Amino acid sequence: MSLISEGANVGPGGARLIQPTGYEPGLYEPSNAEVGDYIALLKPRVMSLVVFTALVGLAVAPGSIHPFEAFTALLCIAVGAGASGALNMWFDADIDALMTRTQRRPVPSGRVRPGEALGFGLTLSVFAVVVLGLMVNLLSAALLAFTIFFYAVIYTMWLKRSTPQNIVIGGAAGAFPPMIGWAAVTGSVSLESLLLFAIIFFWTPPHFWALAIYKKSDYGRAGVPMLPNVAGDAHTRLQILLYTLILVPLGVAPWLLGYTSVLYGAVALAMGAGMVLLAVQVYREASPADRACRHLFAFSILYLFLLYAVLLVDRGWGGLIARVAA
């Protein structure tokens, strides 16, 4: 095989310039990405939810934490979440380019080169884990490292493309932040922190499967085996209802177990009733517009936010202020 590509350039005097086969001009040059493109790599909307749930875990945990350590813990959790997002966008650039929802992301759109996204994600990962371990404690750092690994490797590289249960198992990555916040304060894991994990874990399938139903064509075009594409809409609607029926009692459990006041219990019951009502509507929905799925997807975000916000006010906010001011 000749080392000279068919499209070899001609230099002065007619000499042919040798290029490796497959060479593309500019392939190895740095991109012209702007700061906003690197911020987009961090998935800031996902990061904000991660930081919020981690804050709740940190606030409701018993014990004390120095204000600097609390800030450091939240910063490292945020950076770790952003690192996971960057690694996800690096690996998923090929399928992101095929879906209308993701094709304008920095890597598939060409604004950030894959190698830059990979290096950015790895650098942030190491920074977040090392700083959290040195400045706070080793357990919280170990949990953060496992969360990044789980999302980037177990979910992104394996589960997402291989099984329709990708969201169910992969949802664990998004459920760890409150446990990390809890561990930052206590250096341990308890039943209450596991309950915070379980709420997000069982919230994830109905939340994302509702999205997957009305974005089914996107996932089908990219070859991602989401449950509606593999098992059909009817089975997915049933699974949404079943997971919602598990989620709602878990959402009320902090009150039933005596961890919170009646304020949290009332909000959890009211919002849980809304989730069940919408899940039943999704189960009965037969129109191609998937209006019920859109409503459930939007309401599920409000559900999780309100549960954690009331938990923060009811149980943690005053205690957190007292601890960091001590």
Rank of each mutant, 00 (worst) to 15 (best):
A142G: 11
V129S: 00
G121L: 05
T147Y: 01
A142S: 15
A141T: 01
T163P: 07
L159E: 09
I167S: 14
Y151S: 12
L138Y: 00
I148E: 06
V129G: 00
K160A: 10
A152R: 10
A152G: 13
L144S: 02
G171Y: 10
P164E: 14
R161P: 00
I154K: 11
G121T: 09
R104G: 08
Y151Q: 13
A173C: 13
E116W: 10
V129P: 00
Y155E: 10
F127Y: 11
P114K: 01
L144R: 03
L143R: 04
I148N: 11
L139A: 09
L159V: 11
M179T: 04
M179H: 03
K160D: 13
A128K: 00
G133R: 10
L122D: 03
W158K: 08
L138V: 13
A175M: 08
M179S: 05
A173M: 12
L143P: 05
F146T: 02
G110M: 07
L139R: 07
Y155Q: 12
L118S: 12
P106Y: 05
P106C: 05
A172P: 04
I167V: 15
F150L: 15
I167C: 14
A128M: 06
I169Q: 08
A152W: 09
V130P: 07
N166S: 15
A172K: 09
N137H: 03
P177W: 07
G174E: 10
P114E: 02
R161N: 06
